[in-house]
Design a protein around this nucleic acid. Structure first.
Lengths: 189, 189
DNA sequence: GTCTATACCTTGATAGAC
DNA sequence: GTCTATCAAGGTATAGAC
């Protein structure tokens, strides 16, 4: 608690977070991370026993950020429909990075789904959080439970697909128009 | 050329294709491929100068398969709406593998988008093929050019998102219901 | 707590016998 | 054309001085 170590640990996690996103988990080496954050890689093992351990810390960090962001939306917008619009805007918030590196959650989940059963569970938790938040907005708008769940899945599907294809085609307009379509769809609900 | 080499080359490409899909490009080593196809890895370099070169062959192989599949659809179904239904069904055709390893095109594209500018162009070509085929069906159904393109992008977006989230959640029903929604959407066009 | 030096393994790639 | 043996480089992880 409050010891000097926490600050350095945070620098490692932040650099790993950035590089796992930009280069992918497997393609990122400890040497890359060390160079990025200025901490010698031999020091990593004081904070994390393995690379997978560092990955867990990165995912945990992301989980906290998305949780905080959703909480902010919930706090700032009492209207459930307006909340949905804000959730739909999340991928567009960092649209420039999404086009260049893909969806932070989606690309990592795609990679981990092929090799790490541990990290994949944490990714599922992140998506479940977004799903349940969306689901709750829809219920607050008067949709019954089953219908709300179906609609929430559909919205997430469109957002994820839009991010992926915008990344593949390096086309910001793809993201823009598809998110715009989601907004229009929300207003029909 | 009918020389003996082509057959062994094909075995290497097939094994690489399978493993790049199941484990990812970076996470798959030549040793993995060699073990899978029974060809010693030292022999690989007679057919491919680099790993990226082998990747190109794999992508080329996939491109030919998807081209052949779309040609079959075009040949078997004269009705453009029926063709759209068949295209929408493509991810569901191998639904079991899609749930386990994700969309073959989507996951590879996500990985290459972060490291290989070369291979990524080939991935774009594959998606463009699907996009243009869809686009043409919509034009044949009477939609004007701009509208058809927008609809085609939307359909691809939904299919890609469905495959990704079904993979993330290891949930076959996600894929099933979202593709069903695409079918219903096609009938409204 | 922090860093250097290094062990040990796997990687993609080469050389050369056959 | 095919395979064995091996390379240099880079990977994760460890040992131990400070």
């Amino acid at each position: 608690m409050g010891s000097k170590g926490t600050e350095k640990r945070q620098r490692i996690v932040d650099a790993a977070n950035r590089l796992f996103y930009h280069k992918g988990f497997t393609a990122t080496s400890f040497a890359d991370i060390a160079q990025d954050c200025g901490v010698p890689k031999g020091n990593f093992y004081f904070y994390f026993r393995t690379k997978e351990n560092l990955l867990d810390a990165v995912i945990h960090e992301r989980m906290e950020r998305i949780t905080a962001h959703l909480d902010t939306i919930y706090h700032d917008f009492p209207n459930p429909r307006e909340r949905l619009h804000r959730i739909a805007n999340i991928p567009f918030y960092d649209h420039h990075e999404v086009v260049q590196y893909g969806c932070p959650m989606g690309t990592l989940s795609a990679e981990l789904g092929k090799l790490a059963p541990t990290g994949q569970n944490a990714m599922m938790a992140m998506y479940s959080l977004m799903l349940q938040t969306t689901h709750r907005c829809l219920e607050d708008m008067g949709h019954e439970r089953d219908n709300a769940e179906r609609q929430a899945r559909h919205m997430l599907t469109c957002l994820q697909g839009a991010a992926n294809l915008a990344h593949t085609f390096k086309d910001e307009r793809w993201l823009e128009t598809e998110i715009e379509a989601v907004h229009a769809w929300i207003d029909t609900l």
